[in-house]
Amino acid sequence: MITGEQKPIDEIREMIAPYKRILVLGCASCVAECAAGGEKETAMLASTLRIAAKMKGEDVLIEEKTLDRQCVRDFVILLDDIIEKYDAVLSLGCGAGVQAVAEMFTEVPIIPAINTEFLGETRDQGYWLESCLGCGDCMLHHFGGICPVARCSKQLFNGPCGGAMDGRCEINPDVECAWHLIVDRLTKFGALDRLENIYPPKDWSKKQGGGPRKIVREDQQK
């Protein structure tokens, strides 16, 4: 899932200050799972902004709506009937959602209400952890299912570095040393000798070769 966190309310208020009729737009997919921009959070943000506006005596219209997926045009098109009512959209979608809406409704400013952060997993209630960098060339099978690119602070392919202590990363004792986990995991598989190989430099062209990456699948097209 793509995770994010809501921006500070002051920053949001500053961004929407020039507008009078605002649609607060949530997304019921990833950002709902990470409790940043789902229906619930969208209602909370809209209410908070209305309270703030009332306190300041500002005459603004703030309404809310949540799409199933803000990053898919089939859902974004549902705004077609209502978008004219507003002079700005405050989106709680991820960066992709914000851009998908902006792409479709070019006349209306789309303002991001959350900071998109990472591809991660829900570790526990209220705890999300980055676990994938979307490098375009998955190597997890080599490393016992633990990604050194996303989870090692130095992106080592031949770790662990000299800073690991008691299974913790040198940058912060709250951070697990990914390489400690990899060594433990491969020891359990009886495959530790795999790490005697020197992993060659990674081909980063699959992550950032030239401009935005795209996937085109003819079999999926109309």
């Binding site: 992106q155 080592l156 392919f157 031949n158 770790g159 992993y199 060659p200 430099p201 980063w204």
Partner: peptide, 8 residues
């Protein structure tokens, strides 16, 4: 950056 690691 960490494009290469020290061993590479």
């Amino acid at each position: 950056v960490f494009d290469l690691d020290s061993i590479q």
